[in-house]
Simulated scan of single mutants.
Amino acid sequence: MTGNARSAASSPHRPEPLPPAPGEERSPALALVNTLTTRGGTPVDELDTPRRAARWLADRRLTDDGLSLDAAELDGLHRLRQAVRGLLDAAVTGRAPDARWVESVNRALSAAPVTATLAWPAGGQPSRHTRVAADRPVARALHRLADDTVSLLCGPDAEALAACPADGCARLLLRTHGRRQWCCTRCGDRVRAARHYARRRAAADLSTD
């Protein structure tokens, strides 16, 4: 994100946050890409500062509360978001993705490899657990976001991935219901209002002919 865009996004006159788009509750990767939107032609970035990014990660249980991000970690989160957005857009449009996006996701996965561990408490049953091996909590969070990206692209939800068709909306969603088209009620109301206005204008034009 450019310096101008970041400055605009961190303006004190930030618009009210949009409600989560359908699918965000089960896909943190989808929620990640929807943190960067355009509202009224102005970029709005929910992760524009280390503090907001840390809060977002903790709210989605990707990290614990009280995490502090440094500038490099915030930049890494932004870079992964850009790559995930590119990959999801490619899936929606059917275009081939940029190889750099694939590399960015794979880098996040390899930076925090997963190891399997066995637990067998006294008097209990054995169970298998996985552990993300990384020194920093942010690296583990990026791994989970990258892993969810792969699951979203390669799993059954890939067919439900869609872009909100409302004009000016940049959010993605999962069509979890056959009749659901918009990312939120606000977009749906805006589109219906625009259609109603267009019909009235067309009728007025016909009446003056």
Rank of each mutant, 00 (worst) to 15 (best):
169 C>D: 09
90 A>S: 14
39 R>A: 07
102 V>H: 05
205 D>R: 01
185 T>Q: 06
9 A>I: 07
133 A>N: 06
72 A>I: 06
189 D>V: 08
209 D>G: 13
82 Q>V: 14
87 L>P: 11
115 T>W: 04
43 P>I: 01
101 W>H: 08
81 R>N: 09
33 V>F: 01
4 N>L: 13
152 L>R: 02
71 A>S: 02
180 R>M: 04
42 T>M: 13
170 A>M: 02
77 L>P: 00
145 L>S: 01
77 L>E: 06
184 C>K: 04
153 L>P: 07
124 G>L: 06
157 D>N: 08
78 H>C: 12
65 D>G: 12
199 R>Y: 13
183 C>Q: 07
110 S>N: 10
106 N>T: 01
132 V>A: 13
181 Q>R: 10
11 S>D: 15
70 D>E: 07
50 P>R: 02
66 G>Y: 08
178 G>L: 15
169 C>H: 04
171 R>Q: 00
8 A>T: 13
88 L>K: 08
44 V>C: 10
105 V>S: 08
152 L>Y: 01
14 R>T: 14
111 A>Y: 06
169 C>F: 07
98 D>S: 08
129 H>N: 07
3 G>H: 14
182 W>H: 11
41 G>Y: 12
90 A>H: 10
128 R>P: 05
7 S>D: 15
74 L>K: 10
94 G>N: 05
90 A>E: 02
123 G>F: 11
83 A>G: 06
86 G>Q: 11
29 A>K: 03
133 A>K: 07
54 A>G: 12
77 L>C: 04
91 A>T: 14
63 T>V: 10
30 L>D: 05
204 A>T: 03
197 Y>S: 05
146 A>D: 06
145 L>H: 00
111 A>N: 01
117 T>A: 13
46 E>Y: 03
111 A>S: 15
175 R>Q: 08
32 L>R: 06
181 Q>W: 10
195 R>M: 11
178 G>N: 15
11 S>N: 15
192 R>T: 14
29 A>G: 00
48 D>T: 10
165 P>K: 12
31 A>Y: 01
79 R>L: 14
103 E>C: 01
126 P>N: 03
156 P>W: 03
104 S>A: 02
117 T>Y: 09
67 L>W: 07
5 A>V: 13
194 A>L: 13
24 E>T: 01
18 L>R: 06
63 T>L: 04
76 G>V: 06
101 W>N: 04
150 V>P: 04
